[in-house]
Simulated scan of single mutants.
Amino acid sequence: MSIDEDRSFDSPGLRKLRSDLALALRAADFHGLSEGVCNHFSVAVPNASERFLINPRGLHWSEVRAADIVMVDAAGRRLAGRHEVEPTAMFIHAAVHRIARKACVLHTHMPYATALTLTEGRALDTTLSQNAMRFHGRLAADRDYNGLALDESEGERIARAMSSADVVFLANHGVIVCGDRMDWVYDDLYYLERACMQQVLAASTGMRLMGVDRGLAARVAEQALGERLQSELFFAALRRMLAEP
């Protein structure tokens, strides 16, 4: 690692990104969205071709701090940071960053969203709950499970299935939620799982599910995304609640 790389990793801008990434991981565990020491959150390093911040291998999300975040290249090689990185960590993430042009990429196997990937519909119905409507027109479904993502080609296939969507449901697997800002993306991740939970609970009653007109769902999505102050305030509250010791 060069001196320039070391200074970049500890610059004020990257310290803030590392802090935000670590907070998102701790919050995801706090909200029950983690799974063992698996899955990854990544953020593209601004103005640096194919460099990314990602959570390290072997740490539970609840224990990740800003100092634990690692900088890697698109092949998953560590450029800075004190921990190792899972060799397969970037197979999905690098492709989504590069092909789908997403700055923040959050991949989880969170329970209710994953449950919907096991159904015939494969994804959330965005005409049901108000929480679901905020995702209307923003979802894609990769309907073809192809085994573990153990090579670059599988990551590229997933990224192309995502196209311009902010969220992709991966059949029999999990979800990816993307965006340009960590506070907004984490807010989407949280409310996506809430919407999926509401759909699963409603379906479990055995009663017919009653959605709204698609035009109304589109209008609600536009209203919800018209201002994101609530997303910023939520992330700020999480920072107070889950502050680093």
Rank of each mutant, 00 (worst) to 15 (best):
24 A>C: 15
24 A>W: 00
24 A>R: 08
24 A>E: 11
25 L>W: 00
27 A>S: 12
27 A>M: 07
27 A>H: 00
28 A>H: 01
28 A>I: 04
29 D>G: 11
29 D>N: 15
29 D>M: 05
29 D>K: 09
30 F>A: 05
30 F>K: 03
31 H>L: 07
31 H>Y: 10
31 H>R: 12
31 H>G: 01
32 G>P: 15
32 G>M: 11
32 G>F: 09
32 G>S: 07
32 G>C: 12
32 G>A: 08
33 L>Y: 05
33 L>I: 08
34 S>H: 05
34 S>Q: 02
34 S>M: 07
34 S>T: 14
35 E>G: 02
35 E>N: 07
35 E>W: 01
36 G>C: 04
36 G>V: 11
36 G>F: 00
37 V>N: 03
37 V>A: 09
37 V>H: 09
37 V>M: 05
38 C>T: 10
38 C>A: 13
38 C>E: 09
39 N>E: 06
39 N>Y: 10
39 N>T: 08
39 N>H: 07
40 H>S: 07
40 H>D: 02
40 H>I: 04
40 H>P: 02
40 H>R: 06
40 H>Q: 12
41 F>K: 12
41 F>N: 05
41 F>W: 06
42 S>F: 00
42 S>A: 14
43 V>W: 05
43 V>C: 13
43 V>M: 15
43 V>T: 13
44 A>E: 14
44 A>Y: 07
44 A>H: 02
44 A>V: 13
45 V>P: 01
45 V>T: 15
46 P>Q: 03
46 P>K: 08
47 N>H: 13
47 N>P: 06
47 N>E: 13
47 N>I: 04
47 N>T: 03
47 N>G: 12
48 A>R: 14
48 A>V: 05
49 S>G: 07
49 S>K: 15
50 E>M: 08
51 R>C: 12
51 R>G: 13
51 R>H: 15
51 R>S: 15
51 R>D: 12
51 R>K: 14
51 R>W: 06
52 F>E: 01
52 F>Q: 02
52 F>L: 04
52 F>I: 02
52 F>P: 07
52 F>Y: 14
53 L>A: 05
53 L>K: 02
53 L>I: 11
54 I>A: 11
55 N>W: 00
56 P>A: 08
56 P>D: 10
57 R>N: 10
57 R>E: 03
57 R>D: 11
57 R>M: 12
57 R>F: 03
58 G>H: 08
58 G>T: 13
59 L>Q: 11
59 L>C: 10
59 L>A: 03
59 L>T: 01
59 L>F: 06
59 L>I: 06
60 H>Y: 09
60 H>D: 09
61 W>C: 01
61 W>M: 00
61 W>A: 05
61 W>K: 09
62 S>E: 11
62 S>C: 09
62 S>K: 13
62 S>A: 13
62 S>L: 07
63 E>D: 15
63 E>C: 09
63 E>Q: 13
63 E>W: 02
64 V>R: 00
65 R>H: 10
66 A>F: 06
66 A>Y: 01
66 A>Q: 14
66 A>N: 13
66 A>M: 11
66 A>R: 13
66 A>W: 03
67 A>C: 04
67 A>H: 07
67 A>T: 11
67 A>L: 02
68 D>R: 14
68 D>Y: 08
68 D>G: 06
69 I>Y: 04
70 V>N: 02
70 V>Y: 08
70 V>G: 01
70 V>I: 15
70 V>A: 06
70 V>F: 10
